[in-house]
Computed example of a mutant assay.
Amino acid sequence: MSYDSTATRARLLAAAHDEFAEKGFAGARVDRIASAATVNKQAIYAYFGSKEALFDAVLAQRYTVLADAVPMDARDLPAYAGALFDEITNDAGLQRLTLWKTLERPEVFPEEAQAHRGKAQAVVDAYGVSAETAMDALMLVLAAAQAWNLTPPAVRTPGEQDETARRARHRHAVVTAVAAITATLLE
Rank of each mutant, 00 (worst) to 15 (best):
L13D: 00
A46P: 07
F85K: 08
A180Y: 05
F25S: 10
I44F: 00
L77D: 02
L12A: 09
E107C: 05
L84R: 06
T8A: 15
A60R: 06
F20N: 03
A144K: 02
M135C: 08
M1C: 09
A28M: 01
M135A: 15
V30H: 04
L142F: 15
Q121H: 08
S5V: 10
L66F: 10
T164M: 13
Q42P: 02
E160N: 15
K101E: 11
T151Y: 10
L185D: 01
R171T: 09
E112N: 04
G128D: 01
G27Q: 02
Q121T: 09
L84C: 06
D68F: 02
H17V: 01
L185N: 00
R32I: 00
M1P: 07
D56T: 15
V129R: 07
A168I: 07
S35I: 02
P153V: 12
L142M: 14
T89Y: 09
A46C: 12
G118H: 08
E111C: 12
V155L: 06
P153H: 08
R169F: 14
K51S: 10
V141C: 13
E87P: 00
R11I: 03
A180C: 11
D76R: 10
T157V: 14
L94A: 05
T176R: 14
A67E: 10
V124W: 07
R171E: 09
G27T: 03
A79I: 03
G128S: 03
V70G: 00
D125R: 12
A81M: 04
H116R: 15
Y127R: 13
A131M: 11
T182K: 09
H170A: 15
Y47S: 11
P152I: 06
I181E: 03
A14E: 07
L103E: 05
A154R: 09
G118N: 13
A7L: 11
T89L: 07
Y63E: 15
R171P: 11
L13K: 01
P110R: 06
S5W: 13
A165T: 12
L12Q: 03
D162Y: 01
P106M: 07
H172A: 12
Y47W: 09
W148M: 04
A81W: 02
L186Y: 01
I44K: 03
T89F: 08
N149I: 06
R117L: 09
A145M: 10
A177S: 11
A79E: 08
V141Y: 11
A43L: 01
A57W: 01
S2K: 07
A183C: 03
M1F: 08
A21M: 08
D73P: 03
E112Y: 04
E112A: 05
A69Q: 09
E112T: 06
E187M: 13
A168G: 03
D76K: 03
Q114A: 15
H172T: 14
P158Q: 04
D4V: 01
A122Q: 13
